[in-house]
Design a protein around this nucleic acid. Sequence first.
DNA 1: GTATAATATGAACATATGTTCAGATATTAA
DNA 2: TTAATATCTGAACATATGTTCATATTATAC
Lengths: 118, 118
Amino acid sequence: MPAPLDQCQCRIIHEEKVQRARQSLLSGEETDRLALFFKAFADPTRLKMLWSLLQEEMCVCDLAALLGVSESAVSHQLRLLRQAALVTNRREGPVLYYRLADDHVRQLVELALEHIEE
Amino acid sequence: MPAPLDQCQCRIIHEEKVQRARQSLLSGEETDRLALFFKAFADPTRLKMLWSLLQEEMCVCDLAALLGVSESAVSHQLRLLRQAALVTNRREGPVLYYRLADDHVRQLVELALEHIEE
DNA sequence: GTATAATATGAACATATGTTCAGATATTAA
DNA sequence: TTAATATCTGAACATATGTTCATATTATAC
């Protein structure tokens, strides 16, 4: 009677370690959502956008001018940030003002800055 | 006398906002390093690896068995995490035990979990 | 020395990502 | 309604990313 294989036939050196780790392993859905969240911060342009919105709300064309990229590129990136629930907007006539959705951005970027400054 | 152009000729709606944002804009080098750092967290496999190493050190083949991916893939990912200064290792004979380099990982992932659970 | 185990590496490949371009949509003013 | 402004969207493209495969290291045991 062969031992039940979970998902691979790799050799395992420390069975106990693997067992323990398997207990608290993040689910595929959790890691997918986490990865999506972190991906939002994993691009220089988006980081500059988020950093600027930390100070005050801004519209698409101001962000484009500030960052030196096209308004279309900014719009695409803002959609990604919206999907990650990091920014929201309010409309004033034809102008959309974007702002941060909550305070996680500040905390996260500050933690990261601490790390890279070491 | 034309106004000095910085890096684009886009139209700007709120000149003052753009000026203020430009004051505190992150440098290209800062955002590059930050992006690299966040990229390390922006993948389900790496997140699972980091999450497991949060508990205790593990070797390459245990991680491979745990996650159901090849040892080569794990090795490649660990190199990326090493370059991001997120993990270090110690050798015991032919076996390399990987562990987290500092406590930023825990804080960062916990912040992110807070965010996605809202 | 040779053989074996654990890990690392480089090339190749498929997929994902970020930008640009052209065109669509939405809002306001005339 | 028409025109103008601000933004959005989809397709196309080049580059980046993550995995696999084959092969190279490294350390130990014989």
